[in-house]
Design a protein around this nucleic acid. Structure first.
Lengths: 146, 146
DNA sequence: TATTGTTATACTCTATAACTATA
DNA sequence: TATAGTTATAGAGTATAACAATA
Protein backbone atom coordinates (compact mmCIF):
# COMPACT_ATOMS: atom_id res chain seq x y z
CA UNK A 1 0.00 0.00 0.00
CA UNK A 2 1.47 3.35 -1.03
CA UNK A 3 2.17 5.86 1.68
CA UNK A 4 1.19 8.91 -0.28
CA UNK A 5 -2.37 8.92 -1.52
CA UNK A 6 -1.97 10.39 -4.94
CA UNK A 7 -5.23 11.58 -6.50
CA UNK A 8 -6.62 9.58 -9.35
CA UNK A 9 -5.00 10.62 -12.60
CA UNK A 10 -6.75 12.70 -15.20
CA UNK A 11 -6.42 9.85 -17.63
CA UNK A 12 -8.00 7.37 -15.24
CA UNK A 13 -10.92 9.62 -14.55
CA UNK A 14 -11.47 10.36 -18.20
CA UNK A 15 -11.40 6.71 -19.08
CA UNK A 16 -13.77 5.85 -16.27
CA UNK A 17 -16.26 8.42 -17.53
CA UNK A 18 -16.08 7.21 -21.10
CA UNK A 19 -16.25 3.52 -20.34
CA UNK A 20 -19.23 3.94 -18.06
CA UNK A 21 -21.13 5.87 -20.70
CA UNK A 22 -20.35 3.32 -23.38
CA UNK A 23 -21.20 0.37 -21.22
CA UNK A 24 -24.49 1.95 -20.23
CA UNK A 25 -25.30 2.53 -23.89
CA UNK A 26 -24.55 -1.08 -24.67
CA UNK A 27 -26.72 -2.31 -21.84
CA UNK A 28 -29.56 -0.05 -22.87
CA UNK A 29 -29.47 -1.21 -26.48
CA UNK A 30 -29.34 -4.81 -25.44
CA UNK A 31 -32.53 -4.56 -23.41
CA UNK A 32 -34.61 -2.85 -26.07
CA UNK A 33 -37.30 -5.49 -26.08
CA UNK A 34 -37.70 -6.10 -22.36
CA UNK A 35 -37.70 -4.09 -19.20
CA UNK A 36 -35.58 -0.98 -19.81
CA UNK A 37 -32.57 -0.28 -17.58
CA UNK A 38 -34.41 2.59 -15.95
CA UNK A 39 -37.43 0.50 -15.04
CA UNK A 40 -35.24 -2.42 -14.03
CA UNK A 41 -33.22 -0.26 -11.70
CA UNK A 42 -36.34 1.26 -10.18
CA UNK A 43 -38.01 -2.10 -9.75
CA UNK A 44 -34.86 -3.53 -8.17
CA UNK A 45 -34.82 -0.74 -5.64
CA UNK A 46 -38.46 -1.28 -4.81
CA UNK A 47 -37.78 -4.97 -4.34
CA UNK A 48 -34.70 -4.50 -2.22
CA UNK A 49 -35.82 -1.65 0.01
CA UNK A 50 -39.43 -2.57 0.43
CA UNK A 51 -42.36 -0.17 0.25
CA UNK A 52 -41.13 3.32 -0.49
CA UNK A 53 -42.78 6.64 -1.17
CA UNK A 54 -42.27 8.19 -4.56
CA UNK A 55 -39.98 10.80 -3.08
CA UNK A 56 -37.83 8.18 -1.39
CA UNK A 57 -37.64 6.27 -4.64
CA UNK A 58 -36.62 9.36 -6.58
CA UNK A 59 -33.88 10.06 -4.05
CA UNK A 60 -32.66 6.46 -4.17
CA UNK A 61 -32.55 6.45 -7.95
CA UNK A 62 -31.14 9.95 -8.07
CA UNK A 63 -33.76 11.35 -10.39
CA UNK A 64 -36.18 14.23 -9.96
CA UNK A 65 -39.71 13.49 -8.74
CA UNK A 66 -41.39 13.98 -12.12
CA UNK A 67 -39.14 11.35 -13.63
CA UNK A 68 -40.11 8.93 -10.90
CA UNK A 69 -43.80 9.71 -11.29
CA UNK A 70 -43.42 8.61 -14.85
CA UNK A 71 -41.40 5.48 -14.11
CA UNK A 72 -43.77 4.30 -11.40
CA UNK A 73 -46.75 4.95 -13.66
CA UNK A 74 -45.23 2.65 -16.25
CA UNK A 75 -44.47 -0.06 -13.76
CA UNK A 76 -47.98 0.22 -12.38
CA UNK A 77 -49.55 0.02 -15.86
CA UNK A 78 -47.72 -3.23 -16.36
CA UNK A 79 -48.80 -4.53 -12.97
CA UNK A 80 -45.26 -4.78 -11.67
CA UNK A 81 -45.76 -2.56 -8.64
CA UNK A 82 -48.69 -1.50 -6.48
CA UNK A 83 -49.33 1.70 -4.59
CA UNK A 84 -50.87 1.62 -1.17
CA UNK A 85 -52.08 5.02 0.03
CA UNK A 86 -50.66 6.13 3.33
CA UNK A 87 -53.56 6.18 5.78
CA UNK A 88 -52.05 9.02 7.77
CA UNK A 89 -50.63 11.32 5.11
CA UNK A 90 -52.95 11.24 2.15
CA UNK A 91 -50.52 13.02 -0.11
CA UNK A 92 -48.35 9.95 -0.33
CA UNK A 93 -48.48 6.26 -1.12
CA UNK A 94 -46.06 3.40 -0.64
CA UNK A 95 -44.84 1.64 -3.73
CA UNK A 96 -44.36 -2.13 -3.43
CA UNK A 97 -43.32 -4.81 -5.88
CA UNK A 98 -46.06 -7.21 -6.94
CA UNK A 99 -45.77 -10.94 -7.46
CA UNK A 100 -45.74 -10.30 -11.19
CA UNK A 101 -43.03 -7.71 -10.62
CA UNK A 102 -40.80 -10.18 -8.80
CA UNK A 103 -41.33 -12.74 -11.48
CA UNK A 104 -40.61 -10.27 -14.27
CA UNK A 105 -37.52 -8.98 -12.50
CA UNK A 106 -36.14 -12.48 -12.06
CA UNK A 107 -36.70 -13.31 -15.70
CA UNK A 108 -35.28 -9.99 -16.88
CA UNK A 109 -32.25 -10.49 -14.68
CA UNK A 110 -31.63 -13.87 -16.21
CA UNK A 111 -31.69 -12.53 -19.74
CA UNK A 112 -29.75 -9.36 -19.03
CA UNK A 113 -27.16 -11.22 -17.03
CA UNK A 114 -26.71 -13.72 -19.81
CA UNK A 115 -25.59 -10.94 -22.09
CA UNK A 116 -23.08 -9.50 -19.64
CA UNK A 117 -21.99 -12.95 -18.52
CA UNK A 118 -21.15 -13.81 -22.10
CA UNK A 119 -18.94 -10.76 -22.35
CA UNK A 120 -17.36 -11.56 -19.02
CA UNK A 121 -16.17 -14.91 -20.31
CA UNK A 122 -13.49 -13.03 -22.22
CA UNK A 123 -11.89 -12.25 -18.87
CA UNK A 124 -9.78 -14.65 -16.86
CA UNK A 125 -10.92 -15.68 -13.40
CA UNK A 126 -8.32 -13.40 -11.93
CA UNK A 127 -9.57 -10.49 -13.98
CA UNK A 128 -13.13 -11.17 -12.95
CA UNK A 129 -11.99 -11.19 -9.34
CA UNK A 130 -10.38 -7.84 -9.92
CA UNK A 131 -13.62 -6.54 -11.35
CA UNK A 132 -15.55 -7.85 -8.36
CA UNK A 133 -13.22 -6.07 -5.99
CA UNK A 134 -13.86 -2.81 -7.83
CA UNK A 135 -17.62 -3.22 -7.73
CA UNK A 136 -18.23 -1.98 -4.17
CA UNK A 137 -16.05 1.00 -4.96
CA UNK A 138 -18.16 1.93 -7.93
CA UNK A 139 -21.20 1.52 -5.75
CA UNK A 140 -19.77 3.90 -3.21
CA UNK A 141 -19.06 6.31 -6.01
CA UNK A 142 -22.74 6.52 -6.87
CA UNK A 143 -23.62 6.60 -3.19
CA UNK A 144 -25.29 3.23 -3.24
CA UNK A 145 -26.21 2.03 0.16
CA UNK A 146 -26.96 -1.64 0.11
CA UNK B 1 -3.58 -17.78 -13.44
CA UNK B 2 -6.07 -20.19 -11.86
CA UNK B 3 -6.86 -23.40 -13.63
CA UNK B 4 -10.59 -23.34 -13.06
CA UNK B 5 -12.36 -20.23 -14.32
CA UNK B 6 -15.53 -19.95 -12.28
CA UNK B 7 -18.13 -17.80 -13.99
CA UNK B 8 -18.99 -14.45 -12.49
CA UNK B 9 -21.80 -14.75 -9.99
CA UNK B 10 -25.34 -13.69 -10.71
CA UNK B 11 -25.13 -11.15 -7.96
CA UNK B 12 -21.96 -9.62 -9.29
CA UNK B 13 -23.36 -9.27 -12.75
CA UNK B 14 -26.58 -7.77 -11.50
CA UNK B 15 -24.73 -5.26 -9.39
CA UNK B 16 -22.45 -4.36 -12.26
CA UNK B 17 -25.43 -3.65 -14.47
CA UNK B 18 -27.14 -1.50 -11.89
CA UNK B 19 -24.13 0.48 -10.83
CA UNK B 20 -23.15 1.26 -14.40
CA UNK B 21 -26.63 2.57 -15.17
CA UNK B 22 -26.71 4.70 -12.04
CA UNK B 23 -23.26 6.09 -12.55
CA UNK B 24 -24.06 6.96 -16.13
CA UNK B 25 -27.20 8.75 -15.00
CA UNK B 26 -25.21 10.70 -12.45
CA UNK B 27 -22.62 11.68 -15.04
CA UNK B 28 -25.27 12.71 -17.52
CA UNK B 29 -27.07 14.92 -15.03
CA UNK B 30 -23.88 16.48 -13.92
CA UNK B 31 -22.98 17.65 -17.39
CA UNK B 32 -26.34 19.17 -18.22
CA UNK B 33 -24.95 22.60 -19.05
CA UNK B 34 -21.90 21.64 -21.05
CA UNK B 35 -20.99 19.07 -23.65
CA UNK B 36 -23.28 16.07 -23.16
CA UNK B 37 -21.75 12.64 -22.47
CA UNK B 38 -22.74 11.49 -25.94
CA UNK B 39 -21.05 14.40 -27.67
CA UNK B 40 -18.06 14.18 -25.35
CA UNK B 41 -17.61 10.53 -26.10
CA UNK B 42 -17.91 11.10 -29.83
CA UNK B 43 -15.54 14.03 -29.79
CA UNK B 44 -13.03 12.04 -27.73
CA UNK B 45 -13.09 9.28 -30.30
CA UNK B 46 -12.58 11.72 -33.13
CA UNK B 47 -9.64 13.22 -31.28
CA UNK B 48 -8.05 9.92 -30.41
CA UNK B 49 -8.50 8.04 -33.66
CA UNK B 50 -8.03 10.87 -36.06
CA UNK B 51 -10.16 11.56 -39.13
CA UNK B 52 -12.90 8.97 -39.41
CA UNK B 53 -15.85 8.47 -41.68
CA UNK B 54 -19.28 8.67 -40.19
CA UNK B 55 -19.71 4.93 -40.47
CA UNK B 56 -16.44 4.26 -38.71
CA UNK B 57 -17.46 6.64 -35.96
CA UNK B 58 -20.83 4.98 -35.55
CA UNK B 59 -19.14 1.60 -35.24
CA UNK B 60 -16.63 2.92 -32.72
CA UNK B 61 -19.35 4.48 -30.59
CA UNK B 62 -21.63 1.51 -31.09
CA UNK B 63 -24.58 3.49 -32.33
CA UNK B 64 -26.54 3.28 -35.57
CA UNK B 65 -25.57 5.59 -38.42
CA UNK B 66 -28.57 7.94 -38.03
CA UNK B 67 -27.57 8.59 -34.42
CA UNK B 68 -24.10 9.49 -35.53
CA UNK B 69 -25.37 11.72 -38.31
CA UNK B 70 -27.13 13.69 -35.64
CA UNK B 71 -24.22 13.79 -33.20
CA UNK B 72 -21.77 14.93 -35.85
CA UNK B 73 -24.22 17.56 -37.06
CA UNK B 74 -24.35 19.01 -33.57
CA UNK B 75 -20.62 18.98 -33.17
CA UNK B 76 -20.26 20.62 -36.55
CA UNK B 77 -22.83 23.32 -35.73
CA UNK B 78 -20.75 24.21 -32.74
CA UNK B 79 -17.57 24.23 -34.75
CA UNK B 80 -16.01 21.39 -32.80
CA UNK B 81 -15.40 19.11 -35.77
CA UNK B 82 -14.92 19.57 -39.49
CA UNK B 83 -15.81 17.32 -42.39
CA UNK B 84 -13.50 16.93 -45.30
CA UNK B 85 -15.09 15.24 -48.30
CA UNK B 86 -13.28 12.21 -49.58
CA UNK B 87 -11.92 13.13 -53.03
CA UNK B 88 -12.26 9.58 -54.28
CA UNK B 89 -15.58 8.41 -52.82
CA UNK B 90 -17.94 11.34 -52.82
CA UNK B 91 -20.47 9.58 -50.62
CA UNK B 92 -18.24 9.96 -47.60
CA UNK B 93 -16.29 12.55 -45.66
CA UNK B 94 -13.70 12.39 -42.93
CA UNK B 95 -14.57 13.92 -39.60
CA UNK B 96 -11.75 15.67 -37.76
CA UNK B 97 -11.56 17.58 -34.51
CA UNK B 98 -11.05 21.34 -34.86
CA UNK B 99 -8.85 23.57 -32.72
CA UNK B 100 -11.99 24.78 -30.97
CA UNK B 101 -12.99 21.16 -30.48
CA UNK B 102 -9.72 20.29 -28.77
CA UNK B 103 -10.00 23.33 -26.58
CA UNK B 104 -13.60 22.59 -25.64
CA UNK B 105 -12.79 18.96 -24.95
CA UNK B 106 -9.93 19.88 -22.66
CA UNK B 107 -12.07 22.34 -20.73
CA UNK B 108 -15.00 19.92 -20.54
CA UNK B 109 -12.69 17.21 -19.32
CA UNK B 110 -11.41 19.43 -16.56
CA UNK B 111 -14.90 20.21 -15.28
CA UNK B 112 -16.29 16.72 -15.67
CA UNK B 113 -13.24 15.19 -14.09
CA UNK B 114 -13.49 17.56 -11.16
CA UNK B 115 -16.84 16.11 -10.32
CA UNK B 116 -15.71 12.51 -10.48
CA UNK B 117 -12.38 13.33 -8.82
CA UNK B 118 -14.24 14.79 -5.89
CA UNK B 119 -16.17 11.58 -5.47
CA UNK B 120 -13.02 9.56 -5.84
CA UNK B 121 -11.48 11.29 -2.84
CA UNK B 122 -13.78 9.17 -0.66
CA UNK B 123 -11.70 6.16 -1.69
CA UNK B 124 -8.34 5.24 -0.21
CA UNK B 125 -5.29 5.08 -2.43
CA UNK B 126 -5.50 1.34 -2.38
CA UNK B 127 -9.11 1.40 -3.44
CA UNK B 128 -8.34 3.80 -6.24
CA UNK B 129 -5.59 1.47 -7.38
CA UNK B 130 -8.09 -1.35 -7.35
CA UNK B 131 -10.43 0.72 -9.48
CA UNK B 132 -7.63 1.52 -11.91
CA UNK B 133 -6.86 -2.15 -12.31
CA UNK B 134 -10.48 -2.83 -13.17
CA UNK B 135 -10.63 -0.07 -15.75
CA UNK B 136 -9.00 -1.91 -18.65
CA UNK B 137 -11.30 -4.83 -17.95
CA UNK B 138 -14.36 -2.65 -18.24
CA UNK B 139 -12.92 -1.28 -21.45
CA UNK B 140 -12.53 -4.77 -22.84
CA UNK B 141 -16.10 -5.45 -21.84
CA UNK B 142 -17.34 -2.70 -24.11
CA UNK B 143 -14.89 -3.75 -26.79
CA UNK B 144 -12.84 -0.60 -26.50
CA UNK B 145 -9.73 -0.79 -28.52
CA UNK B 146 -7.32 1.89 -27.44
C1' DT C 1 -47.11 28.10 4.53
C1' DA C 2 -44.60 23.93 3.48
C1' DT C 3 -44.49 19.48 1.48
C1' DT C 4 -45.67 15.72 -1.79
C1' DG C 5 -46.67 14.52 -5.90
C1' DT C 6 -48.51 15.53 -10.72
C1' DT C 7 -49.06 17.87 -15.17
C1' DA C 8 -47.24 20.52 -18.94
C1' DT C 9 -43.55 21.15 -21.79
C1' DA C 10 -39.13 20.67 -23.89
C1' DC C 11 -34.81 18.59 -24.97
C1' DT C 12 -31.37 14.74 -25.75
C1' DC C 13 -30.45 10.25 -27.30
C1' DT C 14 -31.51 6.43 -29.77
C1' DA C 15 -33.76 3.38 -33.01
C1' DT C 16 -36.08 1.61 -37.48
C1' DA C 17 -37.75 2.50 -42.06
C1' DA C 18 -37.53 4.83 -46.18
C1' DC C 19 -34.92 7.63 -49.18
C1' DT C 20 -30.88 9.93 -51.93
C1' DA C 21 -26.55 10.05 -53.96
C1' DT C 22 -22.67 7.76 -55.41
C1' DA C 23 -19.98 3.60 -56.49
C1' DT D 1 -27.16 -3.42 -57.47
C1' DA D 2 -24.73 -2.25 -53.31
C1' DT D 3 -23.08 1.07 -50.06
C1' DA D 4 -22.74 5.53 -47.27
C1' DG D 5 -25.17 8.64 -45.34
C1' DT D 6 -29.53 11.39 -44.49
C1' DT D 7 -34.37 12.35 -43.48
C1' DA D 8 -38.68 11.15 -41.29
C1' DT D 9 -40.68 9.49 -37.43
C1' DA D 10 -41.29 7.51 -32.91
C1' DG D 11 -40.35 6.50 -28.21
C1' DA D 12 -37.70 6.49 -23.74
C1' DG D 13 -35.68 9.17 -20.27
C1' DT D 14 -34.83 13.23 -18.03
C1' DA D 15 -35.34 18.04 -16.52
C1' DT D 16 -37.57 22.58 -15.02
C1' DA D 17 -41.65 25.24 -14.10
C1' DA D 18 -46.20 25.57 -12.70
C1' DC D 19 -49.95 23.46 -10.30
C1' DA D 20 -53.03 20.70 -6.97
C1' DA D 21 -53.86 18.44 -2.79
C1' DT D 22 -52.81 17.74 1.77
C1' DA D 23 -50.37 18.70 6.12
Amino acid sequence: MPIVTAPASVETITRLRLVVMRLSRLLRQQSADELSPTLTSTLSTVERRGPLTLGELAAAERVQPPSMTRAVARLEERGLVTRVPDPVDRRTARVSISAAGSKTLTAARRRKNAYLAERLTTLTAEERASLERALPLLERLVGDQL
